[in-house]
Nucleic acid binder design. Structure first.
Lengths: 357, 357
DNA sequence: TTGTAAGCGTTATCAA
DNA sequence: TTGATAACGCTTACAA
């Protein structure tokens, strides 16, 4: 995909078709006042006689006038626009966050410019640059590891940037500690007696959240003197079908894991499907856990043990951070949202030696 | 939610913080040329000596110049911006479409402004108005029934509007015949011998797609001399848990349906959960069908019979329609995308009298 | 091949 | 309480 090189337009019309756009000048003429007065009633800046105000309002109505946002943005140097770049909307967790982000932004009068990166760092950078060129006043991105250019560009223009799904002390962010999440999941399974733990992670290249989750798992294992051998760590894109592939690969390894941590719920769903297909009883023979707590997680059979990630809250709080910053308020730069381990039926004690078969 | 009344900003700064934005004038000065020349190399309009071109390019680089989109939009009266309003991104089918829409738009140099309506017609209208005020050059909405204001506003400005997930001969649209889809599903089940067909529809108020689907089902039944009694038609929001509620309601009615058509796959998933919970065998005792063919549909147990809706294609083609229109091309206004019945394991022949129990 | 200058539609300053 | 008018940063005739 060459999202980078916009194709040239074939024919450039000078003005949008339709009846020539009505401007403030038209309104002014129609109401028999000056254009300055029109502006004043429009923005409620400066005094206007009630009678005049009514006149202008009526003219605006009759002419169906809408102020030109570009002109306003130009003179005020404020676009009232916020940009967001997410990896993909196909992952429900990001879709939910974007939904909340947009909704909160609109309440404050901002419009959302949306782009997606496809989990590609250089593409992400391109998208941010495009948004900045469009004059966005704030930017939201997912994750804490990016092309350094992103932070630079935003900083250079004084455009606040909020990084989500991550926690970094040095930048504005709304998220959680992915490493801790990985650790928590691993510790939980270790406490259940599992010693052979496999991982179906997301693709870690260009995805610091996925990488951190793996790191957390590794840490927890190390703390108990265990390690995560290469064959026990499979990386797959975040899709159900990939979870199946991932589990298949893990099952081929020796010793066979008694528990599998998946990078998110989609992978976990796939893993559960594969286990069922192979007649492997979950959780008796194999425990499976995910991350996100998507809508369906509680409804799988057995219900999926997972880490709840408050996507809606992340989106909403990101919006609030940007809104407040643009409002000139000083706000906490680091916002941690609470995740929590939701224990359901897909995980259980490690099978005793001999339990199996 | 009062998304309609943006709260007033607390403090309005004059210019965005940071080092005063570098303008074309700065670049011109730096390169020792006129501002017109800068514009020429920037847009590749008009002749520029190679040497000068290099000079300017270098200056642009050194100064980190980015053209001001608002100024450009103002003078060209083109914002290179497209607006979309979907019911919600929480429904994967819309998320996928938006993803495709955005990606295709960017390729053509457009940026996507996104808003959501929450399935509320007046809110949808508000969002469209906001987008129009932002100067979008094209608009995408979901469905074919809206506040009439929407079509008027777009028409008045000559802004192309594409309506999706629907087929209307009189307007630009990319979609399919929801009524036909409902009919097809009902006919399929009728052909299997079902005579007691229940429906868990989406909420039809303000949702013409949901309403059309129900209408199609009703039609198919009528064609065989059957009707759809009130108690056999349940409307619930598009969520898994609501599907459970819906099926519960249907099961309480007499005679109990042998087949249930759900407004989308989420409702169908819920219905299947409820059936399982009650020990009702699917499809032996009860057939269940959905619409959308979401990622998980094939992986349910039993796999879900559904209608495949090409959401990605709808998004992409909507983008292409708008791009071509804005390019001055004459394009087909009505684009039908193919849906297809995917028969899987969740539906089967109607149980013979006495089969049950 | 280059530069000058007239807008584009607003907002905001300053007089009146 | 109102009206001229100068920006805002850019594109684009038109001149040179």
């Amino acid at each position: 995909m060459d999202a980078d090189t916009p194709a040239p337009r074939r024919r450039a019309r000078r003005r949008p078709a339709g009846p020539d756009r009505v401007s403030a000048r038209d309104v002014a003429r129609h109401a028999g006042v000056s254009i300055a007065t029109v502006s004043r009633v429009l923005n409620d800046s400066g005094p206007v006689a009630d009678r005049v105000r009514r006149l202008v309002a009526q003219a605006i109505d009759e002419l169906g006038y809408t102020p030109n946002a570009a002109a306003r943005a130009l003179v005020r140097s404020r676009s009232e626009t916020i940009g967001a770049v997410v990896p993909t909307l196909e992952n429900a967790t990001f879709a939910i966050a974007v939904e909340a982000l947009q909704s909160r932004l609109r309440q404050a009068g901002y419009t959302l410019l949306l782009a997606s990166s496809g989990y590609d760092r250089s593409n992400e950078s391109t998208q941010v640059r495009a948004l900045l060129a469009r004059g966005v006043e704030g930017v939201m991105v997912v994750g804490g590891a990016h092309d350094p250019e992103i932070e630079q560009l935003c900083a250079a223009r004084g455009v606040p940037l909020v990084q989500t799904w991550t926690l970094r002390p040095d930048v504005a962010c709304v998220g959680f500690d992915n490493r801790a999440v990985g650790r928590q999941l691993a510790d939980y399974l270790l406490d259940l007696g599992h010693r052979q733990i496999g991982v179906v992670a997301g693709v870690t290249r260009g995805n610091d959240r996925a990488a951190e989750r793996v790191a957390g798992i590794t840490e927890a294992l190390a703390a108990r003197g265990l390690d995560l051998p290469r064959e026990q760590l499979i990386e797959r894109p975040y899709r159900i079908a990939e979870g199946q592939i991932g589990l298949r690969a893990l099952l081929a390894s020796e010793p066979r894991p008694t528990a599998v941590i998946c990078g998110n719920d989609l992978l976990a769903f796939g893993a559960m499907l594969e286990a069922r297909k192979r007649g492997i009883r979950v959780p008796d023979e194999l425990s499976i856990a995910g991350i996100d707590d998507l809508e369906f997680a509680a409804d799988l059979d057995p219900p999926l043990t997972t880490i709840r990630v408050p996507a809606e809250e992340i989106g909403r709080r990101s919006a609030e951070y940007l809104i407040d910053r643009l409002d000139g308020q000083t706000v906490a730069t680091v916002t941690e949202v609470a995740t929590s381990l939701i224990v359901r039926g897909s995980t259980g004690p490690a099978p005793q030696r001999g339990d199996r078969e």
